[in-house]
Design a protein around this nucleic acid. Structure first.
Lengths: 240, 240
DNA sequence: CGAGGGTTTGAAGTGCATCAAATAGTGTGG
DNA sequence: CCACACTATTTGATGCACTTCAAACCCTCG
């Protein structure tokens, strides 16, 4: 089993692949390093490959003619993207940009498509992943409509934290504050002010990209009151 | 073939079912009329059935403890909902409320689940539907972050209109203005003002729930400039 | 040390929400 | 067919949250 095959097995939807299927899907796979700013593909491009993040972070986004940008998602290592284009019109539904130096493996979409067509287990795994994603998007829309900026940020921090941990909690922001801001649908200035407000209202301590607090309780009280889900909400992509 | 089976064949993901599969899925199906305001299930309920809208409209939503409500979707006849709970934890991820007198058929989720597990074609159809939905949600998030209220409304109207039609266009709003407002993530007052603004800026004519315009052009110019997709955007659920 | 990006702070403007009240529209019972 | 009750919609006035623009600050790295 080659390196690429070993990696892709880490993705939840490929976990149960047998070696034959694995071989088919990873045929023609290729890995490469990309530095910050690299555009992997553009919204509307014809989709021929999907991508796996071996290390680093990738931003998925869409933008209008006049330059306004909407973040679709920001993915850490261990995730794939571009794979949904096997349905639809074989067109990427968003653009993808590397936001931290990243090692990315690309795979053939055609191989994936044909394997899914005959491998029911794989189709089921993918369905289940899609359902999870859908739930997450529903929650995202909810957050943007009923949480204000500080609450949204608080919620983001909570999902970065190890939620089972007791005692002092330490969080390291996974990427630029400016990028987190856009991920949360707000301006950098608003982000900064939201963080100050959280500091004042919940007693978190901020030191550059590191955030510390004695317990998650006050943050939960502050953010989760404006959310329809119960607290231990695991949905965000795990940080590193 | 009974009535319920005939109906469910209209749903895109069930279009290709053979009669055996159809029979399995519709076993135990039952149809009933519901009036406006009827709650079909609540976010968090254990999911045992999924629903098909034979006629009417159904609102999917989530709400926080303090009563704030976020609309997930508003579905017309011909659509199903609650079906994604076959993955996840068998919990409904939203609440469902009838917003116009509706005839609803409910089906067993267990039957659907077991049929999907062995029917690859069905799994693929469902995957494709999920991908379509996902694309739509991405767009929804984009709209809410980069379009303002009048633009969002304009975009909504465009998707209600027959986009191929030439000449005078006539649109009938499919449900309450208040409900459209919440569907678009704004207050009723804001909706009303957004409509006035559209009237002033694009020359549409409003008469109660009926809207008329000489062509879609000015609306397209007004709304689509703040969107990453090209104009003929077909994604919204068709009206009646 | 200086350049440049990321971050914060300040001041001002805008869009939407909110509160309040008027108006239009709809269904009901008489 | 009318008057009433009730709801949907509109309009006006005000406030707040977030954005925008501008400038300072900070940190890293050559």
């Amino acid at each position: 089993m080659d390196e690429n095959q070993k990696e892709i097995l880490k993705v939840s939807i490929f976990k149960h692949l047998d070696s034959g299927a694995l071989k088919k899907i990873s045929a023609g796979a290729s890995s490469s390093m990309h530095s910050k700013g690299k555009i992997l593909f553009i919204h509307g491009d014809e989709a021929q490959r999907f991508y796996f993040i071996k290390s680093g972070w990738v931003k998925l986004f869409r933008e209008t003619l006049d330059g306004a940008q909407a973040i679709v998602d920001i993915l850490p290592k261990g995730y794939i993207f571009g794979e949904t284009s096997i349905f639809e019109d074989s067109i990427y539904p968003y653009s993808a940009e590397v936001v931290e130096p990243s090692e990315i493996i690309s795979f053939s979409l055609k191989n994936l498509k044909s394997e899914i067509a005959e491998n029911n287990q794989l189709a089921l795994s993918m369905l289940s992943a899609m359902a999870r994603y859908r739930r997450q998007q529903d929650q995202e829309i909810e957050h943007r409509s009923i949480q204000n900026a500080p609450q949204r940020l608080g919620c983001f921090l909570l999902r970065l934290a190890n939620q089972d941990e007791v005692g002092v909690v330490k969080i390291h922001l996974p990427y630029d504050k400016t990028l987190i801001a856009s991920r949360l649908g707000m301006q950098p200035e608003t982000f900064s002010r939201a963080l100050s407000k959280l500091k004042a209202q919940t007693g978190i301590r901020v030191q550059g990209a590191t955030i510390e607090m004695d317990s998650l309780d006050s943050l939960v009280r502050y953010s989760c009151s404006a959310c329809s889900s119960e607290f231990p909400c695991k949905d965000l992509h795990a940080a590193e």
